[in-house]
Each structure stands twice: as structure tokens, then as C-alpha cells.
């Protein structure tokens, strides 16, 4: 086994007396898509927040390519290769769809501190952003203001920003939450495409079991903040404990 691209070692966070994430140690390989499941409040999003740096860990470490990320800010981790799409849509509401994506492309191009050239003249940034919009099928909404977009399209844009960032580690937090049956496949196809590339690591928090079954190479289960199960989908889903305690009814209709 090659050395993992991302690993958490005893990662823990406490809020007062409550342990939200409890000593989670887990390693992720390049090219692997790991689904993270567990009941509401199990600490899935908090686990993401610890990895991407939104909240500091009480104990434990996050390692990217073997390098300790403790004390690094969100933007430093982003530039190091950890990218994140959010569960609650988190965009730039009064800017256009194109501008949202272009900001990400511009960040990757390291052009942020450029005070002199005209942003609109950077054709290469605009073209790259348009290419992303075409992939997520938002090109038709290119010049719309984000706050005017439908919920489904905002979710797509949320994913588009992460795809534009193109980090080594993709973290999707319920990417299809609240999307209609027609819209969700667009996003899921994109994730499948990324997985096919086999050079990206994908962490996916998802509730829909059919999605997990088609996409995941591996499942980890969080319960009360602790790692409750870890393994290939068939094994994890078949384990009685997991089925009864954490999947509950969702598995019954499978």
C-alpha cells in the first residue's frame, strides 16, 4: 500500500463537555472515493471542518502527504490541496455565476494580488470558468446573479466552485441535498467522472444509500463522533450492527 495522501490521527474536537469528533484515525488513498455515513449529529460535517481547518482540533492531527497541517489556516490548506463544497450553499450571492467560478480559477492562477491589469481582460480565466460552467450545465445562467438562481442551480454552482478549484482532495458535504430528481444526476455524474480520473481523492458525505452503493470504494461510519466501521461497501453495509443502528430504515427498502 502506498503512503496515504490524507490521514487523520486521533482527530478530536470537544465543545465544552461534548465530544463532537472522538479520536478518529483514518487514512485516505489517492484515487479512492470514501463515503462517510452516520446518523444526523454523528460528527460528519464537523470531521470535514477539522480537515479543512474551519475549526481547530482539540487533539490529534491532519496530515496531507505526510505533512502536519496543524495551525494552518483554511486558505493555506486550500492551496495545499484540500478543497471543500459545503452542505449549506455558501456562494458569493451578489456576483454573477461566471464571476463566482472565475474567482476560484483566479485563485488557482495566483492572480489575486494583481492590482493593475483589468480582470475582464484575463480571457484565459474567463474561458476556464466557462468550461467549468459547461460541465455543470450552468453555462446558460452565466451572467445571472447568484441570488436569483434556483436552489438546484445554486447547489450545482456550489459543486462547480470545488471542481474549478480542482484540489488533490475533494470533500463533498451532501452535494445533492435538496436537489430535484432531475438535477441530482448532473452532480452525481460529475463526481463519478472525477472518480474515473483515479488521480483525485474524494470524501463524500451522503445519506442516499443508492448513491453510495454506485459510487463508493469504501465506507466509513461515524457514530457519536467515533469511527464505528470502516471497510468496503459490501462488508460495511452487510454488517448487522451498522444496518440496524446507523442505516435504520434507509436500508430496508434496498
Amino acid at each position: 500500500m502506498t503512503s496515504p495522501i490524507l490521514a487523520t490521527e486521533g482527530l478530536t474536537v470537544r465543545f465544552g463537555g461534548h465530544v463532537a469528533v472522538d479520536a478518529v484515525s483514518c487514512a485516505f488513498q489517492t484515487g479512492e472515493l470514501t463515503a462517510i455515513v452516520g446518523p444526523n449529529g454523528a460528527g460528519k460535517t464537523t470531521y470535514f471542518n477539522l480537515i479543512s481547518g474551519q475549526i481547530p482540533a482539540s487533539a490529534g492531527r491532519v496530515l496531507l502527504r505526510g505533512r502536519d497541517l496543524s495551525g494552518q489556516s483554511v486558505s493555506q490548506r486550500t492551496r495545499a490541496g484540500i478543497g471543500r463544497a459545503f452542505q449549506l450553499t455558501n456562494l458569493f450571492p451578489n456576483l454573477s455565476v461566471l464571476e463566482n467560478v472565475r474567482l476560484v480559477v483566479q485563485s488557482n492562477a495566483g492572480q489575486g494580488m494583481n492590482l493593475w491589469s483589468m480582470a475582464s481582460r484575463h480571457a484565459e480565466l474567463t474561458e476556464a470558468a466557462e468550461a467549468i460552467l459547461t460541465r455543470v450545465r450552468l453555462i446558460g445562467n452565466r451572467d445571472q446573479t447568484v441570488s436569483e438562481l434556483s436552489h438546484g442551480n445554486q447547489r450545482k454552482l456550489e459543486v462547480a466552485l470545488l471542481i474549478a478549484l480542482d484540489p488533490a482532495v475533494y470533500m463533498f458535504d451532501e452535494p445533492t441535498a435538496g436537489m430535484s430528481v432531475d438535477e441530482a444526476p448532473v452532480v452525481l455524474d460529475l463526481i463519478a467522472e472525477l472518480k474515473e480520473q483515479r488521480d483525485r481523492t474524494i470524501l463524500l458525505v451522503e445519506h442516499k444509500m443508492d448513491v453510495i452503493r454506485t459510487l463508493a470504494d469504501r465506507i466509513i461510519v461515524l457514530h457519536n463522533g467515533a469511527l464505528a466501521a470502516d471497510g468496503d461497501p459490501a462488508t460495511v453495509m452487510a454488517s448487522d450492527v451498522v444496518q440496524e443502528a446507523y442505516m435504520g430504515r434507509e436500508l430496508e427498502d434496498v
Binding site: T78, F86, F92, N94, A119, L161
Partner: peptide, 24 residues
Amino acid sequence: NSPFGRVLQAIRENDFRAEAIGYR
């Protein structure tokens, strides 16, 4: 109207996300 100006607007709109797409 420079790339810098666009980043400022992004920070005004949503500093949390601006940080998460790599801007300090």
C-alpha cells in the same frame, strides 16, 4: 476592476468562502 478588486468583492460577499477557495 483588477483581479484584486474582484477578490475584495468576494470577501465582502462571503469572507468564509473566499478563504475556502484559497484567498488569505
